[in-house]
Simulated assay, not measured.
Amino acid sequence: MKIRVGLLLLALLSGCDDSQTTQKGFAGLGDTAIAYAPVVPGRVFSFPADHGVHEGFRIEWWYVTANLKDAQGRDFGVQWTLFRSALDAAPAASGWRNQTIWLGHAAVTSATAHHAAERYARGGVGQAGVQATPFDAWIDDWQFSTKAAGADPLADMQLKAAGARFRYDLRLTSSRPLVLQGDQGFSQKSEQGQASYYYSQPFFQASGELEIDGQRYTVSGPAWLDREWSSQPLTANQTGWDWFSLHLGTGEHVMLYRMRHKDGAPYLTGTWIDAQGQATTLNAGEISLTPQDTVEVAGRSMPVRWSISIPGKQLDITTRALNPNAWMDLRIPYWEGPVQLSGSHGGNGYLEMTGY
């Protein structure tokens, strides 16, 4: 079982070393998944049900990032993720017969510090899980749960987690609609058709407290929720990705990802979200995404400054990492942290880089 669970976690986590990417694509996500439910175009999303678990699919996650400031203008970043992985495609059994593995990641970043923690749990025994109504996602005492009594369970949320050198307790609110990524929520990841179901809430406003290295701060700022589920989201040729969620100072939001290949050009796509929440898919020909400065982090060369150009939207910016050393030094490591924008638009956002 330990070997099986270890392979499963490789299929979940954002990052792995080169030895794991040789045959099966990045983190095993190129493994075939014939027994599991396929991701196909034309799904009709239903809320609040789709905030919950999707049995039959192999991989699923609830992922929150926040770009925060305190009263003195100091910048911070917060990340919270809950992963669900199915050991088989059958409906989940009760108790210790349950074939679900849960994994939590949480982190806090400042200009001078970055701390991350992880939690593991087996399904069926109450230690971790997700329910759609009222919405609650948890692993141990880490929680992302609704405070709203109305029709939209994501209108008013509480987000909290803690590690050895950090903790945070935030309130997230939004009155804006959810955004379906890709083709009405069908988010393609390769030319061969690998895909996930994917929606976001990029309009959260967060406020609350965080503590890092014994210092407590009252903070506020924009936050972003990503929800994805799939069974085989990558090809065996894809070695990792570079993913951006950006809050522009003019009110728009941008999501971009670049799936890197062992051979050939990366698969590049994105979404432009206007201030009212209207989403427009961006294809590779509309985007220029180029790594600039690199730094040595944990023995790896990481591109922590990028240039991004979307001429059709008059966007020409540079992203710079708040803390270049935002290395998630977990069992399977990767880079993830807040970025700041300059150029045609100001603002901030988050960058995740895997497979380096």
Results as ranks from 00 to 15, higher is better:
F204Q: 05
L180R: 09
G214T: 13
Q205K: 13
S230N: 02
G185W: 00
W243L: 01
Q232T: 10
S175A: 15
Q184R: 12
A155M: 04
G182A: 09
P233Q: 07
S207A: 08
L159N: 01
P153A: 07
Q205D: 13
P153S: 08
A155S: 11
R216M: 15
D226P: 00
A164L: 15
R227Q: 07
A151K: 13
L180N: 07
L159P: 00
T235W: 06
Y199R: 09
V219Y: 04
Y168V: 11
A161D: 08
A164R: 13
A161V: 09
Y197M: 03
D152W: 06
M157P: 00
D156S: 00
R165K: 14
P177C: 15
W224M: 08
Q194P: 04
P177L: 11
G182N: 03
Q181G: 10
N237D: 14
D152Y: 04
Y198E: 02
I212S: 08
A155R: 02
L234D: 03
S190L: 05
L154M: 07
E228Q: 04
A151Y: 14
I212G: 05
V179G: 02
R165F: 14
G150M: 02
D242V: 01
S231P: 03
A223H: 00
F203H: 09
L225P: 00
D183I: 06
Q184W: 10
G185L: 02
R165H: 15
S220R: 12
G240M: 01
G182S: 06
W224K: 03
D226L: 01
F203D: 04
L225S: 01
Q201A: 07
G182K: 01
S187T: 06
Y197L: 01
Y198L: 05
Y198D: 05
L170M: 09
P233D: 05
S174N: 05
S190K: 02
S207Q: 12
L180T: 07
V179P: 01
P202I: 07
S220P: 08
Y217Q: 13
K160D: 12
T235H: 01
Y198K: 02
G150C: 10
D169V: 12
S245Q: 11
